[in-house]
Nucleic acid binder design. Structure first.
Lengths: 227, 227
DNA sequence: CTCTTTATGTACCTCTGGGTTAATTTGTCA
DNA sequence: TGACAAATTAACCCAGAGGTACATAAAGAG
């Protein structure tokens, strides 16, 4: 699919060019695939090297060892998700619509970030050891919590939201079905079939889950999608 | 640390006894720990053997290879969960109470089955390949779905539940927060602190999540724990 | 134009870990 | 009681994966 690096016409004179950033990026991209696919111990450095346009030597040159590479991969996917969360702007929406938008966006973001999901699963298998060692932790998913807090505050101010609406608890709930929906697709399908993973059923689940959150948070909200 | 197997005084006469079932059980118990702790590729057969009261050779004698052992471990934990689900009887309760009980029981069952959670996570990393190969799949989590279906049917008959209440969708929702709560504890804590994992906060989350489900399903249910 | 630093390729080393071979002991049934 | 199967032990094998040594080409400093 990509390849093409071997085309002789391009680089016949200077046998190779120095381009550290591109090399690092290339390694990280492949490593993300491989770690996401096979886990930390399951991924194979030789295989990663083979799929890059560089050599195993360069992996160790830039990342030290397998764990170092894994950490950078982890930081990369967390960074991507955070950047996508930062793009979301609900400050202009009224509270109920803002919350609906946040839930739906979280659901979609998870559905569209399979690498992130898998690497978080893998990291949880390792008890979060590498995430904790990394320096990205503090600012981690801060932005999504900030947004939820802002929306909750406005909702309560306007007497639209119940007082029990709590940003962290909401994030826990919203993340749970958004994450589980992707992370446990394989075993859930094996047990109960693939029906809920059809495009239409996914839309229904998103709608019902969103409505359920709203029914819990918003005073007098009728969860009409459950009728 | 352990050792002691070399002490000559103990076993000078009958050096060993035949007890295949006990040996198999012993291997399975240790292997469950190790696979749950380190994953399929992360677990080490030599280490498993060392922790058993038998030898590596016996693992291969009874389970063929590493994957065979893993499959039996997987079947074991799924079986345990299913048996615990079978014990739950809500047929005598009126629909709303029955549903509340099912949600709470699922939440607690997951919280108390860390091995199951980790092995399901691991199995999902492997795309459910081994679960699908196993012969336990058909009857898998059938009982919990049957119970939900029975309760939903009664609830709708009595015009207590909304028509949109669907057993499989409910199971997806209930499982999601029950599972995520345990599976992602490490990364969630790393990001947002451990506050939600205190005993009291866990009870609050269970209450609120249950109330949220009820508010979605039950006509006119007021989610009072959110006030 | 050299000297140094950075970047890269090739070949290699080591040891771990999954899996096996072969012999030995225990139980059982004619 | 002796052959035969089942259970078990100890020692071994070896591919493969993580990691390294060493030489060297490119780029930058002076």
């Amino acid at each position: 699919m990509d390849g093409g690096a071997q085309s002789p016409a391009k680089k016949r004179k200077t046998s190779w060019k120095k381009d550290p950033e591109a090399v690092k990026e290339n390694i990280l991209a492949i490593a993300t695939e491989e770690f996401a696919a096979h886990g930390l111990s399951g991924a194979n450095i030789n295989e990663i090297a083979r799929k890059t346009s560089t050599s195993k030597r360069m992996i160790y040159y830039y990342f030290g060892d397998k764990e170092g590479l894994y950490c950078k991969v982890l930081e990369g996917v967390y960074g991507s998700l955070r950047r996508s969360e930062d793009l979301l702007d609900v400050a202009g929406l009224e509270p109920v619509e803002a919350l609906r938008r946040l839930v739906e966006a979280t659901f979609d973001a998870h559905a569209n970030a399979p690498h992130f999901i898998r690497l978080v699963m893998i990291e949880n298998i390792h008890n979060g050891d590498y995430l904790r060692k990394s320096d990205i932790v503090p600012k981690l998913n801060r932005s999504i919590i900030d947004k939820l807090e802002e929306v909750c505050a406005r909702g309560k101010d306007q007497r639209l939201f119940r007082e029990g609406a709590d940003a962290l608890e909401l994030h826990w709930l919203i993340s749970s079905f958004s994450f589980y929906n992707v992370s446990n697709k394989a075993t859930f399908s094996a047990s109960f079939g693939t029906s809920i993973y059809s495009k239409v059923h996914q839309a229904i689940l998103k709608k019902k889950a969103t409505d359920m959150i709203l029914a819990a948070v918003v005073n007098g909200h009728e969860p009409s999608s459950w009728n």
